[in-house]
Protein backbone atom coordinates (compact mmCIF):
# COMPACT_ATOMS: atom_id res chain seq x y z
CA UNK A 1 0.00 0.00 0.00
CA UNK A 2 2.90 2.31 0.65
CA UNK A 3 3.11 5.13 -1.84
CA UNK A 4 -0.52 5.36 -2.77
CA UNK A 5 -2.83 8.24 -2.20
CA UNK A 6 -5.81 7.14 -0.18
CA UNK A 7 -8.86 9.28 -0.35
CA UNK A 8 -11.36 6.89 1.21
CA UNK A 9 -11.51 7.71 4.91
CA UNK A 10 -12.46 4.15 5.84
CA UNK A 11 -9.23 2.80 4.44
CA UNK A 12 -7.16 5.08 6.63
CA UNK A 13 -5.89 4.14 10.07
CA UNK A 14 -8.35 4.90 12.85
CA UNK A 15 -6.61 8.06 14.04
CA UNK A 16 -6.73 9.65 10.57
CA UNK A 17 -10.41 9.09 9.83
CA UNK A 18 -11.94 12.16 11.42
CA UNK A 19 -11.21 15.57 9.95
CA UNK A 20 -10.50 17.14 13.36
CA UNK A 21 -8.09 14.37 14.29
CA UNK A 22 -6.20 14.93 11.05
CA UNK A 23 -5.85 18.59 11.90
CA UNK A 24 -4.74 17.81 15.44
CA UNK A 25 -1.99 15.47 14.25
CA UNK A 26 -0.58 18.10 11.90
CA UNK A 27 -0.81 20.69 14.67
CA UNK A 28 1.08 18.41 16.97
CA UNK A 29 3.87 18.05 14.43
CA UNK A 30 4.17 21.83 14.36
CA UNK A 31 4.36 21.85 18.14
CA UNK A 32 7.23 19.36 17.92
CA UNK A 33 8.95 21.65 15.42
CA UNK A 34 8.66 24.43 17.96
CA UNK A 35 10.04 22.17 20.67
CA UNK A 36 13.02 21.33 18.44
CA UNK A 37 13.93 25.02 18.51
CA UNK A 38 13.42 25.18 22.28
CA UNK A 39 15.89 22.37 22.80
CA UNK A 40 18.29 23.84 20.26
CA UNK A 41 18.46 27.01 22.38
CA UNK A 42 19.26 24.94 25.44
CA UNK A 43 21.90 23.06 23.45
CA UNK A 44 23.36 26.40 22.37
CA UNK A 45 23.48 27.51 26.00
CA UNK A 46 25.16 24.26 26.96
CA UNK A 47 27.70 24.52 24.15
CA UNK A 48 28.64 28.03 25.21
CA UNK A 49 28.70 27.25 28.93
CA UNK A 50 30.42 23.87 28.98
CA UNK A 51 33.83 25.36 29.62
CA UNK A 52 32.61 27.89 32.17
CA UNK A 53 33.13 25.79 35.26
CA UNK A 54 34.40 28.34 37.84
CA UNK A 55 35.14 26.44 41.05
CA UNK A 56 32.75 23.62 40.11
CA UNK A 57 33.43 20.36 38.32
CA UNK A 58 34.35 20.07 34.64
CA UNK A 59 32.12 17.93 32.38
CA UNK A 60 34.70 15.17 32.54
CA UNK A 61 34.66 15.14 36.34
CA UNK A 62 30.89 15.34 36.57
CA UNK A 63 29.92 12.62 34.11
CA UNK A 64 30.03 8.91 34.67
CA UNK A 65 28.91 6.95 31.64
CA UNK A 66 27.76 3.76 33.40
CA UNK A 67 24.43 4.89 34.86
CA UNK A 68 23.74 7.05 31.83
CA UNK A 69 24.06 4.05 29.52
CA UNK A 70 21.41 2.26 31.58
CA UNK A 71 19.15 5.33 31.31
CA UNK A 72 19.76 5.44 27.57
CA UNK A 73 18.89 1.80 27.05
CA UNK A 74 15.75 2.24 29.16
CA UNK A 75 14.61 5.16 27.03
CA UNK A 76 15.49 3.49 23.71
CA UNK A 77 13.57 0.41 24.82
CA UNK A 78 10.59 2.54 25.85
CA UNK A 79 10.59 4.12 22.40
CA UNK A 80 10.55 0.60 20.93
CA UNK A 81 7.67 -0.55 23.15
CA UNK A 82 5.79 2.63 22.31
CA UNK A 83 6.23 1.73 18.62
CA UNK A 84 4.88 -1.75 19.39
CA UNK A 85 1.89 -0.18 21.14
CA UNK A 86 1.02 1.86 18.07
CA UNK A 87 1.55 -1.18 15.82
CA UNK A 88 -0.93 -3.08 18.03
CA UNK A 89 -3.32 -0.14 17.80
CA UNK A 90 -3.12 -0.25 14.01
CA UNK A 91 -4.23 -3.88 14.17
CA UNK A 92 -7.07 -2.89 16.51
CA UNK A 93 -5.77 -5.00 19.37
CA UNK A 94 -6.55 -3.10 22.55
CA UNK A 95 -5.02 -5.62 24.98
CA UNK A 96 -1.45 -5.58 23.60
CA UNK A 97 -1.78 -1.84 23.01
CA UNK A 98 -2.52 -1.21 26.70
CA UNK A 99 0.17 -3.66 27.78
CA UNK A 100 2.92 -2.11 25.64
CA UNK A 101 1.85 1.37 26.65
CA UNK A 102 2.06 0.29 30.30
CA UNK A 103 5.56 -1.06 29.75
CA UNK A 104 6.50 2.23 28.06
CA UNK A 105 5.27 4.20 31.07
CA UNK A 106 7.17 1.97 33.47
CA UNK A 107 10.40 2.38 31.48
CA UNK A 108 9.80 6.13 31.31
CA UNK A 109 9.22 6.33 35.04
CA UNK A 110 12.37 4.25 35.57
CA UNK A 111 14.31 6.65 33.38
CA UNK A 112 13.07 9.65 35.37
CA UNK A 113 13.87 7.87 38.65
CA UNK A 114 17.42 7.09 37.50
CA UNK A 115 17.91 10.65 36.33
CA UNK A 116 16.74 12.06 39.67
CA UNK A 117 19.16 9.70 41.38
CA UNK A 118 21.94 10.83 39.06
CA UNK A 119 21.18 14.49 39.80
CA UNK A 120 21.05 13.86 43.55
CA UNK A 121 24.41 12.13 43.40
CA UNK A 122 25.88 15.01 41.37
CA UNK A 123 24.65 17.56 43.88
CA UNK A 124 26.00 15.51 46.79
CA UNK A 125 29.42 15.18 45.19
CA UNK A 126 29.83 18.55 43.49
CA UNK A 127 27.28 20.94 44.99
CA UNK A 128 24.27 22.67 43.42
CA UNK A 129 24.03 24.46 40.10
CA UNK A 130 24.77 27.69 41.91
CA UNK A 131 28.42 26.59 41.59
CA UNK A 132 28.91 27.47 37.96
CA UNK A 133 27.45 28.44 34.63
CA UNK A 134 28.32 24.99 33.34
CA UNK A 135 26.34 23.20 36.06
CA UNK A 136 23.39 25.54 35.49
CA UNK A 137 23.41 24.76 31.77
CA UNK A 138 23.87 21.03 32.36
CA UNK A 139 21.00 20.65 34.81
CA UNK A 140 18.74 22.87 32.72
CA UNK A 141 19.28 21.02 29.44
CA UNK A 142 19.10 17.53 30.90
CA UNK A 143 16.39 18.53 33.35
CA UNK A 144 14.17 20.06 30.67
CA UNK A 145 14.28 16.76 28.84
CA UNK A 146 13.57 14.96 32.11
CA UNK A 147 10.64 17.27 32.73
CA UNK A 148 9.28 16.47 29.28
CA UNK A 149 9.59 12.73 30.01
CA UNK A 150 7.87 13.17 33.39
CA UNK A 151 5.01 15.01 31.72
CA UNK A 152 4.90 12.22 29.14
CA UNK A 153 4.56 9.59 31.86
CA UNK A 154 1.60 11.46 33.37
CA UNK A 155 0.12 11.93 29.91
CA UNK A 156 0.54 8.24 29.00
CA UNK A 157 -1.00 7.16 32.31
CA UNK A 158 -4.00 9.43 31.71
CA UNK A 159 -4.34 7.95 28.20
CA UNK A 160 -4.36 4.41 29.64
CA UNK A 161 -7.29 5.42 31.83
CA UNK A 162 -8.95 7.10 28.85
CA UNK A 163 -8.49 3.94 26.75
CA UNK A 164 -9.96 1.85 29.53
CA UNK A 165 -12.95 4.18 29.98
CA UNK A 166 -13.77 4.97 26.36
CA UNK A 167 -12.31 2.12 24.34
CA UNK A 168 -10.38 2.53 21.10
CA UNK A 169 -12.37 5.32 19.43
CA UNK A 170 -10.87 7.44 16.62
CA UNK A 171 -10.39 10.29 19.10
CA UNK A 172 -8.58 8.07 21.61
CA UNK A 173 -6.50 6.56 18.80
CA UNK A 174 -5.44 10.05 17.72
CA UNK A 175 -4.47 10.98 21.27
CA UNK A 176 -2.39 7.81 21.51
CA UNK A 177 -0.80 8.54 18.15
CA UNK A 178 0.22 12.10 19.08
CA UNK A 179 1.50 10.77 22.39
CA UNK A 180 3.69 8.30 20.49
CA UNK A 181 5.07 11.14 18.35
CA UNK A 182 5.94 13.01 21.54
CA UNK A 183 7.60 9.98 23.05
CA UNK A 184 9.76 9.16 20.02
CA UNK A 185 10.67 12.83 19.76
CA UNK A 186 11.95 12.79 23.34
CA UNK A 187 14.02 9.76 22.42
CA UNK A 188 15.63 11.74 19.59
CA UNK A 189 16.37 14.63 21.94
CA UNK A 190 17.93 12.21 24.38
CA UNK A 191 20.18 10.72 21.70
CA UNK A 192 21.58 14.21 21.15
CA UNK A 193 21.91 14.88 24.89
CA UNK A 194 23.70 11.56 25.30
CA UNK A 195 26.03 12.43 22.45
CA UNK A 196 26.68 16.12 23.07
CA UNK A 197 26.64 16.17 26.87
CA UNK A 198 27.69 12.75 28.05
CA UNK A 199 29.86 11.23 25.30
CA UNK A 200 31.44 14.48 24.15
CA UNK A 201 32.01 15.39 27.81
CA UNK A 202 34.26 12.39 28.10
CA UNK A 203 36.43 13.27 25.08
CA UNK A 204 39.69 14.83 26.14
Amino acid sequence: MIGQVQTDARERPLEFRDRRDNLAILGFWFFLGSDVVLFSCLFAVYAVFQGRVAAGPTPRQLISLGPVLVETVALLTSSFTCGLAIAAMRRGRTGPLAAWLGVTMLLGAGFVGMEIHEFATDVRLFGTWHQSGFLSAFFTLVGTHGGHVSFGVLWGAALLVLLWRQGLTPRVARRLYTFSLYWHFLDIVWVFIFTVVYLAGKIT
Binding site: R52, W129, H130, Q131, G133, F139
Partner: peptide
Protein backbone atom coordinates in the same frame (compact mmCIF):
# COMPACT_ATOMS: atom_id res chain seq x y z
CA UNK B 1 15.94 30.08 37.21
CA UNK B 2 18.63 32.54 38.26
CA UNK B 3 16.20 34.70 40.22
CA UNK B 4 13.97 32.09 41.81
CA UNK B 5 16.02 28.90 41.95
CA UNK B 6 19.59 30.04 42.45
CA UNK B 7 21.26 28.96 39.18
CA UNK B 8 24.22 30.97 37.86
CA UNK B 9 23.60 31.55 34.17
CA UNK B 10 24.20 35.26 34.30
CA UNK B 11 26.39 35.61 37.39
CA UNK B 12 29.89 36.45 36.26
CA UNK B 13 31.36 35.47 39.62
CA UNK B 14 30.28 31.91 38.93
CA UNK B 15 31.44 31.89 35.31
CA UNK B 16 27.99 32.82 34.05
CA UNK B 17 27.61 34.88 30.90
Amino acid sequence: LDRLFGSSFFTIGHAGM
